[in-house]
Design a protein around this nucleic acid. Structure first.
Lengths: 335, 335
DNA sequence: TTGTAGGCGTTATCAA
DNA sequence: TTGATAACGCCTACAA
């Protein structure tokens, strides 16, 4: 209903053919300047908006991109939510629609349904979706794709991510700079590239200062705060001066345990994390390496649009993280 | 690229005309049974999927619905996130695409862009978006719309919501049932229908027992936990036995203040909320009237599809809330 | 530089 | 019950 002004209307009113009007509207070359202007002005005065379905059908683009997330990943996941928000904002800037693909119930079908039918021109796949069967299939579909977070195996798909190696390095260096020497690491899932990179950064920061990493202080984790909480006794028992948790959720899990057991942060132990998750509760503030969400979204969308346009995009774009001081790093205990 | 099997292919392979194939595929009547079966089977063997753009252009539907949220409403807002998730799930069940519309930067343009162009068949507008200028304009656009949460003024748009009146009533009754008599209410924004209904329920529960509501125990709030925290001193100073907060965020804000000031919940005071927000931290557990998110999403999507189909939908569908006991209601103090 | 004409894949109208 | 045929609105060779 909304809009019944068609290209033909604009053309007629401008005294040109639809073809010329189309060219003018789409910024194609080969249109006299005054004609182009005329078309443009009547178009806007008529409030002309191209019918996207027609554009799409005629072989053009959909002007819609998809954002793929795991199905149960949204509620309570600040990282995932921030990604959605930033991608949505970026898409809007480019005047692109955003299809949210949380599916998963219907493995292969979802892929077909939403992509094969020409509903979107391309997709951004978030790292939180990686691993789901249908997402893996999606990666093989012949559709422009950008990964927001690295895939453990696929290196053939362009990736946009925060520079996790540097993040791990800088954050650990910051901890070491405070004089801590007995630094524990609560690692992330082995299967996650970001987790591994952060761990590598952790090691690199030690090496840089000629310090040895105490392997017994590296604890396995899974990015979940709950698990971190459960493993906390073991970790605190190792009596580290500081703990680098591989994400904020886990850091907060540790913090909670500490709070409950009279362990003061940062007096007794320092705790830091990754992501830049903000909890509004003062007892859960931790110093962290924040994800540059806005830039991540912008870069991912811009790259995907390049890809769709047929331009080439760098295989890997790593954005700088930002240290956010929230006072959870203290001085090492007196020796 | 994905799919190049067209209706013509299916038709040819089935030995019928495209028209018949179309009818068969769409379950139109007037096709011999054996023909229909033949078409259907070749379609599936060819993995035929209709081109949505073509369907749309031909006057059919988009098979995409929009979900409108405020721009900054997603991160850290469990309610909004839950809505997204449940609507996405419901849309997926109906094989509908879901466009996420978080826009707002471009007031009127967003409306045009995403709706006038025929990108979606209809929209679900969440209550969290109500009030934004462009959303108000959107309500006047001639496009099927369902409100997920009531609008303060528009009663011409079908609403799906939890039954806030009953929720407020039942929750307050539960508090009163425990014997509390000095019950405070931390209200929500005046502009929000849900907040007002919960307050009405609060009063109704008192009336039901012949109890007078102490108006000095009704405090203004804005749904934000931070604000609740700031107002907490004043509220606790009034020495209520119990506090009914108009949503969980505010309840948690109160709880935080209580925790910090040696006020034990529920021994010293009971606190309850609405929404069913789950925090994983045990010190922030509150008894609450939960939103039936899944059913809300399902109902909203189903109603919107009815609307799109031209069927009529009830002007107001209120779903039952559910009491979730989390132990934040205690006994009233001995008198 | 501009216009004409055909086609994108589907649905709907109207005959047969 | 079926099958031509004409839209739907736009883009893009190809011609002028």
């Amino acid at each position: 209903m909304a809009n019944d002004v068609t290209l033909d209307d604009v053309a007629r009113r401008s005294g040109v053919s639809p073809a010329t009007a189309s060219r003018a509207l789409n910024g194609r070359r080969g249109v006299r300047d005054d004609v182009r202007e005329r078309v443009l002005s009547t178009a806007s005065s008529l409030k002309y908006r191209p019918n996207r379905a027609a554009q799409n059908l005629a072989g053009g683009r959909t002007s819609v991109i998809g954002l793929v997330l795991g199905s149960e990943e949204l509620v309570g996941n600040t990282y995932a939510t921030s990604i959605v928000q930033s991608v949505a904002a970026a898409a809007s800037v480019h005047d692109e629609g955003l299809m949210l693909i949380l599916d998963s119930q219907k493995p292969a079908i979802a892929v077909q349904n939403l992509l094969s039918d020409g509903l979107v021109d391309g997709v951004i796949i978030s790292v939180v979706a990686i691993g789901e069967q249908w997402v893996e299939e999606l990666l093989d579909a012949n559709i422009p794709t950008v990964l927001l977070g690295a895939h453990p195996r696929r290196t053939d798909v362009p990736v946009v991510d925060v520079d996790n190696l540097t993040a791990g390095h800088l954050l650990t260096a910051e901890v070491l700079r405070h004089g801590h020497r007995r630094v524990a690491m609560l690692a992330g899932p082995q299967s996650r590239v970001d987790a591994n990179q952060r761990l590598r950064g952790f090691r690199a920061a030690h090496e840089e200062l000629g310090l040895a990493v105490d392997e017994s202080l590296i604890f396995p984790g899974d990015f979940h705060g709950q698990t971190a909480y459960q493993r906390a006794p073991e970790i605190f028992a190792a009596a580290p001066d500081a703990i680098v948790a591989c994400n904020d959720d886990m850091a907060i899990g540790l913090l909670r345990y500490a709070n409950e057991h009279g362990i003061d942060v940062p007096t007794d132990v320092s705790i830091v994390g990754f992501d830049g998750i903000t909890l509004r509760y003062p007892e859960y503030q931790i110093t962290t390496m924040a994800q540059p969400f806005e830039r991540l979204g912008r870069t991912a969308v811009a790259s995907l649009l390049d890809l769709i346009r047929g331009d080439s995009v760098p295989p890997e774009q790593l954005l700088g993280p930002q240290l956010i001081e929230r006072g959870s790093i203290g001085s090492p205990p007196e020796t």
